[in-house]
Structures are given as structure tokens and as C-alpha cells.
Design a protein around this nucleic acid. Sequence first.
DNA 1: TTGCAATTCAAACACTTGTATGAAACTATC
DNA 2: GATAGTTTCATACAAGTGTTTGAATTGCAA
Lengths: 220, 220
Amino acid sequence: MASDHTRSAILAAAERLYADRGFGDVTLRDIVAAANVNLAAVNYHFGSKDELIAELFVTRSIATNRERLRELKAAEEQGGGRAPIEVILHALVGPTLRGCLGPENQRSTAARFMIRASIESVPPIRRIKNREIDHLRKFAGAMRRALPDRSDVDIYWGLNFALAMAHHTIRESERLTKLSEGKCDLDDVEDVVARVVGVATMALTAGKVEAKAPAKMAAR
Amino acid sequence: MASDHTRSAILAAAERLYADRGFGDVTLRDIVAAANVNLAAVNYHFGSKDELIAELFVTRSIATNRERLRELKAAEEQGGGRAPIEVILHALVGPTLRGCLGPENQRSTAARFMIRASIESVPPIRRIKNREIDHLRKFAGAMRRALPDRSDVDIYWGLNFALAMAHHTIRESERLTKLSEGKCDLDDVEDVVARVVGVATMALTAGKVEAKAPAKMAAR
DNA sequence: TTGCAATTCAAACACTTGTATGAAACTATC
DNA sequence: GATAGTTTCATACAAGTGTTTGAATTGCAA
């Protein structure tokens, strides 16, 4: 067992560096320098650089997924097995957005790391990432229960678009701020969440309460 | 002037390799091997690896932007200076989606390269990329003319979400196919374009033609 | 304390990267 | 056809990468 101090120092330093600068240009020597440990410590404790990244990713992955599922389950139980679509979507995109946006000093390193992981797709992560599909399927199931009249195709597209808006907003938050000259306030996280959930909900419910599919025009 | 053959062979090979495998793990030696030229040729013709990437990016960048603007101008002129919002959004996301989705064999290498560039953000590209904001501003202007009652904030968010859905769908097309077990047909590009445009249009016009804003609930 | 395993460390290793060099081959002009 | 300028080529270089090694150090039990 021993001290464990070195091990966790490496994990913390690596996560912070990866979150800040991406996987591309963070070297093992950067990590050990930030963690104040010896170069060989990484290979001693984790086996290889890739295994370190993998451990980082799986740890955060199950944590994030657990949080999302907790929100989901709670909502479904409260609604007797069927939650409103907005609440489901909120459970899907809320945790990530909350972690990655908002005032600089209260952003979670963990969430920023996960965003990097979802963007850069380095080999050790890509290998693990397929399991995420099972996790998303649970949300698809809940959405189907919330919107029993919707086709599977529409459900999946709605899920895709919800994740798209959340992730893209995080990834390009700087550009959106600059483009809008600060008019879009990315620090007001709950407003961002509400916008994403609102649009996704509309995408999923359009043509149900109202007439019929307003999409499909323009072009060709 | 000379043959130029080597130069363009390098450009073509580099673009294809970067589009397929990303900037991260494509080496100069991979490129010269694919182009059947000598290793030193890259530095001779382009100065450095970064300058090769930059030239690739600026060339494609102005080409893509020109295509999008051509569609936009045409639509606005036809509408007497004001185009329908769906057509504007179609001009924004159509070209990219068409280039990156659809049957494998007819995907444009150029567009796939641009997606890579918009994702991986390697230094030489990041330096150039700020000009894209000016380009997006032109679309924001057109959208404002199409929806004069909408606030700037809503315009920018709509623009952001439209790009989000288009890019994310391209980037995660494989996962969406797997998640939906093939039910979402990513090869039907015009259907994808229509879905993206449809949702973005809804996001931008909600609470205008119909009753009142269905968005903004959930949370806080 | 003694002994033994776990951990740390400096150093080196094997490999890959982008770039530089100088000679060779080519091309076009006179 | 000789010459000057351009382009190709094999090769070497310097720097950086993850990993390995084997000796030193530490921590803990007998």
C-alpha cells in the first residue's frame, strides 16, 4: 500500500495539465515536473503513459455518468417511471455544462479534462469510449418513455443535437464570446443550460402539440 | 516556375492524410512517402511543416467561405436584401455537411480536412483562425436582417447552435450511427441538412410566429 | 538492529520527430 | 554543348519522446 502520495500527485498534475493544454503537447516530463516526482514514477505506478491516461479517463467517466444517472433516476422515480423530457435533457447536459462553464475559478478540472477527452480522442481513450454508448442508451430509453409517440430516429437525433449544443458551446465558448462581443454571457451557466435544454426540447416536441413537422424545407 | 508537380503532390497527400488521421499522428515522412517525393522536399517547397499546414488551411478556408458567401449573397439578392432565415442557415451549414457526410467515396477531402482543422486546433492553424470571426459576422448580419425583431443575443446563440449541430454531427457521425443501430441515416445528407436547419430555425423563431416561448423552463 | 520489500532516483536507451547539408541530377538559356 | 539556376536526393543532425535499468533510499516487520 505505502504512501500513495506520489500516485495521486501524478494523477492530479496530469489531469490539470491535460485539461489546460490538451493531450497533444503535454509530455511525461511536464507531468512529473508539475507533480514534483521523478520521471520513472509514472511507469512505476501506472505501467505506461497510456495507462495513466486511461485510468484518469475511466475514473472521471464513471463519476460523470453516475451524476447524470442520479439526476435521471430521481426524476423518473418522482414521475412514476416517466420524467418530463426537459428534465431528462437537463440531467444529460447540465452536469457537463456546469463543470466546464461559469466563472473561471470555479470550473472543475475534472470536467475540463473530460471535454478534452471528448475532443482530442487519443488512442487509449478511444478504446474505452465505446462503453459510453451504453450509457447514452439509458437516456434514449428515458426519452422514449417521455415521448412515446416519437419515432426512434427522432429520439436519437434529439439526443445528438442536445449533446452537440452542449459540447460545442463549451469548446467554442471563447469564440462565441468574441463573436458576440460579450453579449452572450457564458458565465451565466444556468441560462446556457436553459437555452440548450429549451432548443433540444423544441426539436423533440415540434409537430406534436402543434401541426406537423415544420422542418424539411429549404434547399436541394 | 518549373514543374510544380512535387509541390502539388505534397499538398494533395498531406491534405488526405491529415483529413484521415488528424494532425496528431501524421509525420512528414508519412506525407513524403504518400506523395512519392523526397523528405527534404517539404522544407524546400514550403519552408517548414507548419507553413505547409498553414498554406493548406488558408487555401481551403477561403474556398469554403467563398462558397458559403456565394449562397448567401444569391439568396439575399433574390429576396431584395433580405433572405429567409432557413436559406441563410442552409448556406451556413450546407456546404460543410455535404462535404463531410454522404457515401464514403464522394466525400470531399477538402471538407474533411477543414473539420479536422476545426477540431484539433494545431498552432499554425490557431494563429490564422481568428479571421473566421469576421466571416461569421457576415452571417450574423444576414440573420439580423431576416429576423429584425430578434435580439442580438438570440441571433448569436442561434448561429452557435446551428454550427454546433452541424459540426458535432460530422464529428460523431460514427457514434450516432452505432447508437441508433443504423436508424439515423448519415448518408442521406439532405435529410441531415434539413434537420439541422429545421431545428436551428425553430430555435431562432420560437415565440415569434407561434404562441409564446416554449423554451426556457427546467432548471435553476 | 537486521533484513527485506517497496519506492525513488539519476542516468541512459531506443526511437521518432522536424530540419539542415552538400553533392548529384536535371532544366533551360546562351 | 557548356553553364548557371533550380530541384532532387541520401544522409546526418539536434532535440524530444516514452521507457528501462540498476543502484540508492526509504519504510516497516521480525
